Amino acid sequence: MRPKIILFGDSITEESFDVGGWGAALAHHFCRTVDVVLRGYSGYNTRWALLGMDKIFPVEDGASSPIAVTIFFGANDACLSDRSSAFQHVPLHEYKQNLNSIISLIKKRWPSIVVLLVTPPPIDEDGRLRYPYGDNHGVPERTNEAAGAYAKECVTIGEECGVSVVDVWSKMQQFPDWGKSFLRDGLHLTPSGNKIVFEEVLEKLKKAGLGVDTLPVDLPVFSDIDPNDPLKAFQSSDISSK
Rank of each mutant, 00 (worst) to 15 (best):
L215N: 09
P122C: 00
D229M: 04
E15A: 13
R39P: 03
K152W: 05
R32G: 11
L187Y: 09
V163C: 14
P3L: 08
I123K: 03
A27H: 03
A78N: 10
R128T: 12
P140M: 14
I102M: 04
D229G: 06
L210W: 11
T190G: 11
W110P: 05
A68E: 11
V155I: 01
I225A: 01
L205H: 00
K207C: 00
P216W: 03
H29V: 04
V163A: 10
L38Y: 08
D177T: 14
K171Q: 08
A149G: 00
P216C: 02
L51C: 13
L129W: 00
N76T: 09
W169P: 00
I239L: 15
P111I: 09
N144L: 10
V90N: 06
H28I: 03
P220W: 08
T214L: 04
R47Q: 12
T119H: 03
T156E: 08
A78Q: 13
R128E: 13
H137R: 11
S181H: 10
A147H: 14
D185L: 12
D238I: 04
S84M: 01
F8D: 02
G62P: 13
I103L: 04
D226H: 00
E160V: 04
V168M: 03
S101V: 08
Q173D: 08
G43D: 05
D229N: 13
T13R: 02
H89L: 05
F30G: 03
K96I: 06
A146N: 12
V34A: 15
G209T: 07
D82Y: 07
D224Y: 05
K206N: 15
